Simulated scan of single mutants.
Amino acid sequence: MKINKYIDHTILKATATEEDIIDLCKEAKEYDFFSVCVNSGYVSFAAKQLQGSNVKVCSVIGFPLGAMSTEAKVFETQQAIKDGAEEIDMVINIGELKSRNFKKVEEEITAIKKVAGEKVLKVIIETCYLTPQEIVLASEIAVKAKADFVKTSTGFGNDGAKMEDVELMKKAIDGKAKIKASGGIKNLDTALSYIEAGVERIGTSSGVSIVKELKQ
């Protein structure tokens, strides 16, 4: 199995330097990961590092809280694509979901998908803050708004991916989207268990050690 092709090789911490981004991109090329996932301010820099390789650039949007205005998220998406992002991982407005403003949540995802066009849109629902019912609702809304993936976590909440949450998401999307698991996936066993559960992408900063573990 080519586990490397499931991995979005990720660095999103506030302290990430250009040097860190260069290292991330070098590793992504060396291990042939699916993409690198970076904050939007680093998209053009990462795209330059990856020129001539198969590795895509994925940008997070409205990260990590999701509480920005829709207009700000839409602009950030447009700019990221202009800068070379081929995939977009947006954070939903969690507070709006919890306020039961489902139409607003859906309209925001729709607006971002509209500017993303053919680019892959992954919707981060931040499962650690949601009830099981809200996880189902958020996943259904993402599918209605034509998202390509639903994603568990930012990795900046109070918890990351959980198998029971992935199962809820899987039921809710009913094959109409894919699932990305992220947050706390640090070893081969964990990554494989998610892939076996039907997850089609893994967000992790431990991609190198996961691939090395597989080779051993």
Rank of each mutant, 00 (worst) to 15 (best):
E126I: 06
A147L: 02
C25N: 09
S99P: 10
S209L: 11
V74T: 07
G84T: 10
I92D: 00
E107W: 05
K162W: 03
A67D: 13
D20Y: 06
K151S: 07
G203C: 04
I81V: 08
L168G: 09
F33Y: 03
S209M: 11
E76D: 14
G117Q: 11
L188S: 06
D23I: 15
E126W: 02
I21L: 08
Y129I: 08
K48Y: 14
L12M: 13
D83H: 10
K178T: 02
I135H: 03
G207F: 05
I3P: 06
K5F: 04
F33A: 00
L192G: 02
I135R: 05
S209T: 14
A46R: 08
A85F: 04
E86P: 02
I185L: 12
E167H: 15
G175I: 02
C25W: 07
T190Q: 12
A116R: 10
N54G: 07
M169R: 05
S182K: 03
F149E: 01
D159L: 07
L188C: 07
E108R: 03
E108K: 03
T17C: 04
F34S: 06
I210Q: 09
S193E: 14
V115S: 08
K151R: 08
A116M: 11
S206M: 12
K176H: 05
F34M: 05
K29H: 12
I179K: 01
G155F: 12
G203S: 04
I22V: 15
T190M: 12
K26P: 09
A172D: 04
G160T: 10
K215L: 14
K186A: 12
Q79N: 12
I22M: 09
L137W: 04
T15E: 15
G203A: 03
D23L: 15
I124F: 00
C128D: 01
V199D: 06
I88H: 00
S182P: 07
D89S: 04
N187W: 09
I124Q: 01
A16G: 07
I92F: 05
I21M: 08
V57R: 09
S69Y: 14
L168A: 13
A172E: 03
C58G: 06
V38H: 06
V123P: 01
R100L: 14
D8T: 01
Q79F: 10
C25F: 07
A147P: 04
S153K: 03
K26N: 15
G203N: 01
K186W: 11
T190K: 14
D8Y: 02
K82L: 12
S59Q: 11
I185W: 09
K162P: 05
K73G: 09
F63S: 06
I179P: 01
A138Y: 00
N39E: 10
Q79H: 12
S206Q: 13
L214T: 04
F102G: 09
T131H: 03
Y129P: 05
R201G: 00
K176G: 02
I210C: 10
A111E: 06
N4Y: 08
S44H: 15
D165M: 11
V120S: 03
Q78V: 10
L65W: 12
K104P: 02
G157V: 04
F33S: 00
N158R: 15
E71G: 03
V74A: 06
K13P: 13
